[in-house]
């Protein structure tokens, strides 16, 4: 289990990195962030990039900053463990540390990066589903261009994003959570730190009358990329979140929108059971948290 040869670039600045990837991206070169998924794949020789452009020495990509609008911008190379333990993140986007707890183990999160986990687009990844629910904004740069992508467009399929071969995800904007918003991240895996079988992220607000608004729910582990629970969201928005309604709303999504597959760890029926029970538990938790903000 030794990787195949590759050319190695260790740029010290973003400009240098953009030049490097412009040169090698089209010929099978890849970006190396934390490498906690890429290097194992290389050791199995399932991935054989011709060149690696290593972003680990680019100090300008490591940051967590507040935005004026109450959100955050996070440098793509910020270590997952740094994000998880950051007090500003905890305050402004508490769903992020909550989901990061489930991502592998702390030793992996010490090296793994926020941008890397998103750009990996793992269908069982914690951050993509949270990105979809929170509608992260992705800052994508190349030598000649600079663009932003919403979460809906960013994730394309299994291990595939909208990033072009010469582009680098450099920063992630995390929108502000609205006042009185509740959140929840729930997942099931067979072991702590092992691949998730299914996960649900929920974000919602309650108005003064306790009516749900801005409800967003997304599932992971049920398709090639995160799936928004449109039916459940529609049923919950504008209504009192009673236990019965939550169950009904989630059931509508499970029946109408989810089509999970089976693998060696989970049957379709079990995944649907998880979708029902975790989905309802997640919405309930978000409601309780929203109510507590009053």
């Amino acid at each position: 289990m030794k990787p195949a040869s590759f050319a190695y670039f260790s740029p010290k600045s973003l400009d240098e990195a953009l030049a490097n990837i412009a040169e090698v991206g089209d010929d099978g070169g890849k970006i190396l962030a934390g490498g906690q998924s890429l290097v194992p794949a290389m050791n199995f020789r399932m991935a054989q990039p011709t060149a690696l452009v290593d972003l680990n020495e680019i100090q300008e990509l490591f940051y967590i900053k507040p935005t004026d609008t109450g959100g955050l911008v996070i440098g793509a190379m910020t270590r997952d463990r740094t994000v998880e333990l950051d007090s500003l993140v905890k305050k402004r986007a508490p769903i992020i540390p909550e989901c990061l707890y489930w991502m592998a183990h702390p030793t992996i999160r010490n090296r793994g990066t926020f941008g890397g986990a998103l750009a990996h687009s793992d269908p069982a990844g914690q951050l993509p589903v949270v990105a979809v629910v929170m509608n992260f904004n992705f800052h994508i740069q190349s030598k000649d261009a600079d663009r932003w992508s919403g979460a809906d467009d960013f994730f394309v399929s299994v291990y595939t994003t909208c990033l072009e071969a010469d582009e680098i995800l450099t920063g992630i904007e995390v929108p502000a959570m609205t006042k009185m918003s509740g959140y929840s991240y729930k997942q099931v895996s067979r072991q702590t730190g092992e691949s998730a079988l299914l996960g649900v992220a929920t974000l919602l607000s309650l108005d003064d009358a306790g009516i749900v608004k801005d409800c967003r729910i997304a599932y992971m582990g049920v398709a090639e990329k995160p799936v928004m629970a449109m039916e459940a969201m529609a049923m919950l928005n504008g209504n009192q979140p009673s236990d019965e309604l939550i169950t009904e709303a989630i059931e509508a999504t499970v029946k109408g929108e989810l089509d999970p597959g089976a693998d060696i760890h989970a049957s379709v029926e079990y995944r649907l059971h998880l979708a029902r029970t975790l989905g309802a538990a997640s919405v309930k938790e978000a409601v309780i948290r929203a109510a507590k903000q009053e």
Partner: peptide, 28 residues
């Protein structure tokens, strides 16, 4: 509850890594 070598009907191993073959961890 954790460890099973899973073969398909052609006797091909489906979980030949520690990512899919689960050895009990401390929290298990």
């Amino acid at each position: 509850y954790f460890e099973k070598l899973v073969y398909d009907e052609n006797a091909q191993l489906l979980n030949g890594s520690l990512m899919d073959y689960l050895i009990p961890r401390a929290t298990d």
